[in-house]
């Protein structure tokens, strides 16, 4: 009994390329089921053998908070009200960025052995990393909410800005992930080098400490750190209960759009060569 595919016969013509940038977007839409499968694989396999399963995504930040609050507010003696909310909000955003960029690289390397044999739109891997990171971020937000309430902070109206901040940081992160995964195909040591960059980058921004412990004369240096704008627009509505400064929002938006465009452009231009190298 023949059971042919019902989709219309696909025509592939190597000379039919209009704008590679948009072709890849169209292909991603066509492969949306694959995106969904890969993201759900990541979520399922992460906690596959554990009893609590996905609940760990929420428990983990809570546990981390208890340790950090004890360690920092008592050992370091940083006098900052509601220190744990301050740290956790910064940490969640940072973890989202570092995990997503790292997994963009490892997803592409994992897919490498498939790229020799079957056609897959290569952008799938970076977008999968982003989707997984977003789900994890959203699942840990309830933990942040609990810590807020425990510290006597009730969310105020500006909290509705948080999704916008997440959208902007996602665009920036995807752009970085695309650039890094392009590099890692050609140079395997990109991954290791990026770990060192991440480690120092982490301490070069006000996540574990408030900006005012830095002497005034050095503070301008922080303006060169793109992450600091995303930290500000994400943390201000949560920690201070205020709308983020318009200037920071504007810079963050400009960074998000330009890095994503650059990443997408570089990635799609080089993607055809991946099969030769991976």
């Amino acid at each position: 009994m023949p059971f042919y595919m019902q989709s219309s016969p696909e025509i592939y013509d190597s000379s039919d390329r209009k704008l590679i940038l948009l072709d890849e977007v169209r292909e991603l839409v066509r492969y949306r089921d694959l995106l969904f499968q890969l993201i759900s694989r990541n979520l399922k396999t992460r906690y596959k053998r554990s009893v609590l399963g996905i609940v760990w995504t929420m428990v983990h930040p809570l546990m981390m908070m208890i340790v950090l609050t004890l360690a920092f507010s008592h050992v370091w003696r940083i006098e900052l009200p509601n220190f744990s909310v301050y740290v956790l909000s910064g940490l969640l955003l940072w973890n989202f960025f570092s995990q997503t960029t790292n997994s963009a690289m490892s997803e592409l390397l994992w897919g490498g052995r498939l790229l020799h044999r079957i056609y897959i739109p290569k952008g799938v891997f970076a977008v999968t990393a982003l989707g997984t990171g977003l789900v994890n971020l959203c699942l840990s937000l309830p933990a942040l909410f609990i810590i807020m309430l425990a510290n006597g902070l009730t969310p105020r109206a500006p909290i509705i800005f948080v999704p916008v901040a997440i959208l902007l940081v996602s665009m920036f992160t995807l752009g970085c992930g695309l650039l890094l995964s392009t590099l890692v195909v050609f140079f395997a040591d990109t991954y290791e080098m990026f770990q060192i960059v991440l480690l120092s980058w982490f301490y070069l921004q006000p996540i574990m400490y408030p900006i005012w412990i830095i002497p005034e004369s050095y503070r301008w240096l922080f303006a060169f750190n793109p992450m600091s704008y995303f930290l500000t627009i994400f943390r201000t509505p949560i920690y201070d209960g205020l709308w983020p400064p318009a200037q920071d929002v504007a810079i963050a938006a400009a960074l998000a759009v330009s890095v994503l465009t650059l990443g997408w452009w570089v990635f799609t231009r080089k993607a055809d060569q991946f099969a030769y190298y991976v």
Partner: peptide
């Protein structure tokens, strides 16, 4: 690989009609 759309030609044109099933590893 050209026919399976895994690689693109440096020059010239590859045209194909229909779905390809590679017997992958």
């Amino acid at each position: 690989r050209l026919i399976a759309q895994v690689m693109r030609p440096t020059r010239g044109r590859v045209w194909r009609k229909g779905r390809v099933a590679p017997l992958l590893e």
